[in-house]
Simulated scan of single mutants.
Amino acid sequence: MHFENPPRERIGDLLAAVGNIAVVGLSDKTDRTSYMVARAMQMRGYRIIPVNPTVDGEILGEKCYHTLAEIPEPVDIVNVFRRSEFCAEVAQEAADIGANVLWLQQGIISQEAADIAALHGMTAIMDRCIKVEEAITMHGRSRV
């Protein structure tokens, strides 16, 4: 099946209603794109939950989990900073925790991950930066 991202209006609606964003592959290094994007989203009022199997402790002042399954609260968006070949596994983990959205960052595309998301009723977004989309779609909008 050919994949298409949802229209920008739908992306804005998703971002307006989001509670928690789990960031898979969030680095604790401040010069990494994952850190800068997650920090920007945090500064805009989004709750960021770091997921990185190599980091113990906290990132951006939030407890870091080694896997999505360890997160003890609901996750709305799973934002992925991993290479494409790892995304199908992340998509299945996102489905297993009942996430609503699987978001693969700019430059990351996985048809298999999108298919898994669709199979489990998740919205998939690929090859888009969540920070950029938030700036475009939320300009002047308030979050629910």
Results as ranks from 00 to 15, higher is better:
Leu15Phe: 12
Ile130Gln: 13
Val132Cys: 02
Ser142Trp: 01
His2Ala: 11
Gly107Glu: 04
Leu119Ile: 00
Leu15Ala: 12
Ile49Cys: 05
Ala113Phe: 07
Cys87Ile: 06
Val23Leu: 12
Glu133Pro: 09
Lys63Trp: 00
Glu133Tyr: 06
Glu93His: 09
Ile108Ala: 00
Ala124Tyr: 01
Glu4Lys: 14
Ile77His: 02
Leu102Ile: 08
Ala88Trp: 02
Arg47Ala: 13
Ala117Cys: 02
Ile49Lys: 02
Thr123Ser: 01
Val78Pro: 08
Leu102Tyr: 04
Asp127Ser: 14
Gly25Ala: 10
Asp127Leu: 08
Lys29Glu: 15
Gly57His: 05
Arg83Tyr: 03
Ala94Cys: 02
Lys29Gly: 11
Phe86Thr: 01
Glu4Gly: 01
Phe86Gly: 04
Thr123His: 05
Ala16Glu: 15
Ala95Pro: 09
Asp31Leu: 14
Asp31Gln: 15
Tyr65Asp: 05
Gln92Asp: 05
Arg83Trp: 00
Ala40Leu: 10
Gln105Ala: 07
Gly61Thr: 10
Asp127Val: 08
Leu26Lys: 14
Ala40Ile: 06
Glu112Val: 04
Leu14Tyr: 09
Met122Val: 07
Asp76Ala: 05
Asn5Tyr: 04
Asn100Phe: 06
Pro72Tyr: 10
Ala114Phe: 02
Met138Trp: 04
Ala94Val: 00
Glu112Ala: 11
Pro6Ser: 01
Asn5Cys: 04
Gly19His: 13
Ile11Pro: 05
Leu14Pro: 09
Pro7Glu: 14
Tyr65Leu: 07
Arg32Thr: 14
Lys63Leu: 12
Glu85Ile: 01
Pro6Cys: 08
Pro72Leu: 09
Val144Gln: 01
Gln42Trp: 08
Phe86His: 13
Pro50Ser: 03
Leu104Asn: 08
Ile59Trp: 05
Ser27Asn: 11
Leu68Tyr: 00
Gly107Asn: 11
Met138Thr: 07
Glu112His: 00
Gly140Asn: 08
Ala113Ile: 04
Val90Thr: 12
Asn20Phe: 11
Met36Arg: 15
Val24Ile: 14
Arg32Met: 11
Ile116Ser: 06
Val24Lys: 14
Pro53Asp: 00
Ser27Thr: 13
Ala114Ser: 06
Glu134Asn: 15
Ile48Tyr: 06
Ala22Arg: 12
Ala91Asn: 02
Pro74Trp: 02
Arg10Tyr: 10
Val144Ser: 14
Val80Lys: 00
Val18Thr: 15
Phe3Lys: 04
Gln111His: 11
Ser142Leu: 07
